[in-house]
């Protein structure tokens, strides 16, 4: 038990130092702009199909599942607003972040882990190139920027999925549907939900990089790095979400 607790505190300390190094390095030149753009492409653009399909299914299923209950109360007309609110406030950010944890965090963990095991990170260091700056800073910045954009994309596609879901059982005009969606949304619904996605993105990148960068030698550790990155990132997403909801609640 003591050893287990010691390892948890050790890990927490190491993650904190790793995170602190990010803030120290991020503002220091040289800036790896090219690698950052490449990472944005890999993390953002290449995740669009997965996030798009998931977002569509979320919107469609949420509409189909909620409709009977609302119909019982004769409140079917509230469906567009309810779907949009649920998606934007909670479902799209969390589900998209979880998908990104699975796809991006594990990918980064495995990639950096294998680079570590095959001495590619050491090779950078002996060539007087800062591997943290080139590999870690660029990836964390890319996830911090791309995850919110992916969530906004998932919001849009999800709302579109909701429109199709409503039209399976009734006939609603697209313009009317969207005007109802927009009427139900307030600024306070969008802003906190968007802010928390930056935190989701930051921690998805940070945990993937930490697990990969600190992988032990041996191929087994590459698998472990990828796996533990997904587990830790998913857990952190829920914790951040809980905190974000509590903080938002204070202002409502």
């Amino acid at each position: 038990m003591v050893i287990y607790l010691k390892s948890i505190f050790n890990d927490a300390g190491n993650v904190t130092l790793f995170t602190a190094r990010f803030f120290k390095e991020v503002l220091k030149p040289p800036f790896e702009i090219k690698e950052f753009i490449r990472q944005c492409y890999t993390i953002g653009y290449k995740s669009l199909p997965l996030v798009g399909i998931t977002g569509f299914i979320m919107g469609l299923v949420l509409t189909l599942q909620s409709r009977p209950t609302l119909a019982e109360f004769g409140a079917e007309s509230w469906l567009p607003g309810m779907v949009a609110l649920s998606l934007i406030r909670e479902i799209a950010p969390v589900i998209t972040a979880l998908i990104c944890a699975g796809k991006i965090s594990s990918g980064i963990g495995a990639e950096l882990g294998s680079m570590k095991v095959t001495e590619q990170i050491d090779a950078m260091e002996v060539s007087a190139i800062n591997p943290y700056k080139y590999l870690v800073v660029t990836r964390i910045l890319a996830t911090t920027l791309m995850v919110p954009l992916l969530v906004i994309f998932a919001d849009g596609i999800g709302i579109l999925g909701g429109y199709i879901g409503i039209n399976i059982h009734s006939d609603v005009n697209l313009v009317r549907y969207f005007s109802q969606v927009l009427a139900s949304l307030d600024f306070i619904d969008i802003l906190p939900a968007t802010i928390k996605t930056f935190f989701f993105g930051f921690f998805i990148g940070m945990i993937g990089c930490y697990k990969g960068f600190t992988a032990a030698n041996g191929t087994e550790s590459v698998g472990k790095a990828a796996n533990s990155a997904v587990v830790a990132a998913s857990l952190i997403i829920f914790i951040i979400d809980m905190l974000a909801v509590q903080i938002t609640d204070l202002f409502m």
């Binding site: 294998s114 680079m115 095959t118 001495e119 590619q120 050491d122 090779a123 002996v126």
Partner: peptide
């Protein structure tokens, strides 16, 4: 210069 055991080329 450092030549690593498995060359450590960037994959």
């Amino acid at each position: 210069g450092f030549l690593f055991q498995n060359a450590a080329l960037y994959d």
